[in-house]
Design a protein around this nucleic acid. Structure first.
Lengths: 234, 234
DNA sequence: TGTATTTTATTTGTCGACAAGAAAAATACA
DNA sequence: TGTATTTTTCTTGTCGACAAATAAAATACA
């Protein structure tokens, strides 16, 4: 938007353009800076980043592969909509992956994994402390992704990351409406999860992971049912 | 390879090139026509399909997003290797997804889903009858993907499809070495799965799905342990 | 005024060309 | 002969331009 965007990029390394565009667009989509349905203009992006349409296009193909943007043949491309009618399928998948990844982490984690997990745990706690909503959402996702990594199953990790991404967008909506509700509780639950993993207590990890996930799902569902009622009454 | 490839494509619709290349490469990769590690040359593909490198490139980006090809920056592109050391993670994920998708299908399927599922079931039986290995592998994957579709959870379906793809490559190896062993048994198990789904018996679907998956995994594992011993003894 | 048809405008998909990067080949040097 | 350095070759990443496809605007017609 400012002229610094075009000015500050006279030279850049050869393969770095796509990644830069991909990362930035992804963050903007997940943080709802680009809300669902926003049109995406290749030419505009090309001008903004000071590069040709080719690398932009590659980044868009990547994002489309992950379902973050939708593309009408020969016509517009836009940020993927959130399918509110089928949120339950997202929640089902999230709960199962929470359980499975926490379980596997308890089984297969190595000492160095715990350092990383604890790092994100502290980041999340700090974000809660400073009431930084966006940081809370992002570090929460990073925390659980780190746990999944410790479980060492790339297939589960891959799906879980996608689910957490989608959840990021929904949580963003959530925290837009009702701020500062119960994140402290999540901090404590995260600590319990870490303890179960460290103790290699698979069943406890499963149980706590499931409870944690269902806790979140329940709260979000409550929010949406409230919103639904509002929508109807208006 | 033959000159018909370049001759037969003077005109083609606008957005169809990528899909054509994508579909064909995908099949060739999954059927091991292009074995793991095969180099992929953009220019060569462009000549073969009679188009420029741009649509080829887009198809490759897509395939890379699904993990079917690996790409070294500024250097070669090749068919993704099979990670034999971590096959257990694939099997873990497969067994879980077999269970989950069969379960959901028992819960949420509609009458028309059963028609599709039965269709693939018969295709598979026919392939077994005619001892067409490649068709067996492909229709088996299609059968289970159809069940997943009937479960109506796009996240699970997406992961399951990826897993079935990867499994297709492994089964291809398997049937290359030891032909015609026990596919008839699978036909019967498939029939049992359909029955459980139709009866909406969730627990039975889960149980049979799990048993079916573990059956396959066990056989494949047996094969590979046999191969390992061979490798060592040579 | 309302609808059908043509024209324009905008955006995408594809192309051919060129330059950067990395490996392989060739050369220089001990 | 063996190693280091330069040169060449080959492949990829990026660019600017053009044509096809579609939507929007303009026009014709009732």
């Amino acid at each position: 938007m400012t002229d610094t965007d075009t000015a500050t990029a006279p030279e850049r390394k050869r393969g770095s353009g796509v990644k830069m565009v991909y990362d930035l667009l992804r963050d903007e989509i997940l943080d709802l800076v680009l809300p669902p349905g926003s049109p995406i203009d290749e030419v505009q992006l090309a001008e903004r980043f000071g590069m040709s349409r080719t690398p932009i296009r590659e980044a868009l193909v990547r994002l489309s592969g992950e379902g973050l943007i939708e593309t009408l043949p020969n016509r517009s491309t836009m940020v993927a909509n959130i399918d509110f009618l089928n949120l339950n399928t997202l929640f089902d998948a999230l709960v199962l992956m929470y359980r499975v990844t926490t379980r596997l982490a308890a089984q297969y984690h190595r000492p160095e994994d715990l350092l990383i997990i604890r790092g994100f745990h502290e980041d999340y706690a700090a974000a809660v402390q400073s009431r930084d909503t966006l940081a809370m959402i992002a570090t929460n996702a990073a925390f659980h992704a780190a746990i999944a990594d410790a479980g060492r199953n790339p297939y589960f990790t891959g799906l879980f990351r996608r689910l957490l991404d989608e959840a990021r967008r929904i949580l963003r909506l959530y925290y837009q409406s009702y701020e500062e509700q119960f994140p402290q509780r999540f901090v404590e639950e995260h600590a319990e999860i870490i303890a179960a993993i460290e103790a290699r207590d698979v069943e406890a990890a499963d149980r706590i992971g499931k409870a944690h996930a269902e806790q979140i799902v329940l709260q979000v569902q409550k929010l949406f049912s409230r919103n639904d009622r509002l929508d109807i009454s208006l």
